[in-house]
């Protein structure tokens, strides 16, 4: 077993900050230490513990794709003590990072299949890593469809990337905002994600659906997917229980015997159904 302090974070320099939506920022982080940078590897779906030294740690996914080397990105909403402190960081500041932790999307198993991504609000970041991973290895997959919804136009994150995806002929992007959330020049759909999904009716044939969003969205989206012919082992999601350590010791994130930090955060709908209602 390794003989190093598992709580000691990597020091990362904030290279770039993007304001995505009110209170939502993306940080691009680069390792301070070259050796650590070279040794670092992760896969789509994994997460880490990000810290402002002096304020504590907070858990988010790695939002960048493992195909993009030399940096990692995270996207977070300003809410608690740590994220409020992160929001005060400037480019060039140093933050801490521990990870990667948790399991990954089984993207290798999805080769030759079509992918349907369904995300709501701030839940696009945990999916962005796998979207870019798929797009950077586009030849491995058939159709790629992205359905992304938010409360209103201002809350949509990754606006530049949405424009990129929109422009690509090999991606079908559907964006939607909740009724009343549209602006006069809004060209996307208006309606809740499950309804828009039902209308768009993407094919379930040889397709994997990856769903991420607030619990209420997931609850109403899953039946629609089942109606479209998706089965419980062709639907995937990621869970976000509260965590402190990230590696199965602090005792917070378990749903029954399943630890979100070790056995997750990625679960198939089949696995999710077997979990007790503790997420």
């Amino acid at each position: 077993m390794e003989e190093k302090n598992i709580y000691k974070p990597y020091l990362m320099r904030v290279e770039k900050i993007t304001l995505e939506a009110p209170g939502v920022r993306t940080f691009r982080l680069k390792f301070e230490n070259e050796e650590e940078a070279n040794a670092f590897e992760f896969k789509a779906g994994q997460f880490g513990e990000y810290s402002v030294i002096g304020e504590g740690e907070s858990t988010f996914c790695i939002a960048s794709s493992p195909t993009r080397k030399g940096y990692i990105e995270c996207t977070y909403r300003e809410a608690g003590r740590v994220t409020s402190a992160l929001a005060k960081c400037e480019e060039g500041d140093v933050v801490g990072f521990r990870g990667p932790y948790g399991n990954t999307f089984p993207i290798d198993e999805w080769k030759g299949k079509s992918l349907l991504f369904i995300a709501g609000g701030i839940a696009l970041p945990p999916m962005r890593c796998v979207i870019w991973n798929a797009l950077d290895t586009r030849e491995n997959f058939k159709d790629v469809t992205i359905l992304y919804g938010a409360k209103n136009v201002g809350d949509l994150v990754y606006k530049n990337e949405l424009a990129d995806w929109e422009a690509r002929p090999d991606v079908k992007l559907i964006t939607t905002v909740d009724p009343g959330g549209q602006t006069p020049d809004w060209k996307g759909e208006v309606g809740f994600v499950p309804a828009v999904l039902e209308k768009a009716a993407p094919s379930s044939e040889n397709t994997v659906a990856i769903v991420c969003g607030p619990p209420i969205m997931i609850k109403f989206t899953l039946p629609v997917l089942e109606k479209l012919g998706f089965t419980e082992d062709t639907i995937y999601t990621t869970l976000e229980n509260r965590m402190k350590c990230g590696f199965g010791k602090c005792g917070r994130c378990n749903c029954g015997p399943v630890y979100v930090c070790k056995d997750g955060p990625v679960f198939s709908y089949k696995q999710l159904k077997a979990l007790p209602d503790e997420y």
Binding site: I6, F247, G248, K249
Partner: peptide
Amino acid sequence: AIFTWDINDVI
């Protein structure tokens, strides 16, 4: 057993 589960808490 908790502190050595897969990852060794060396402290």
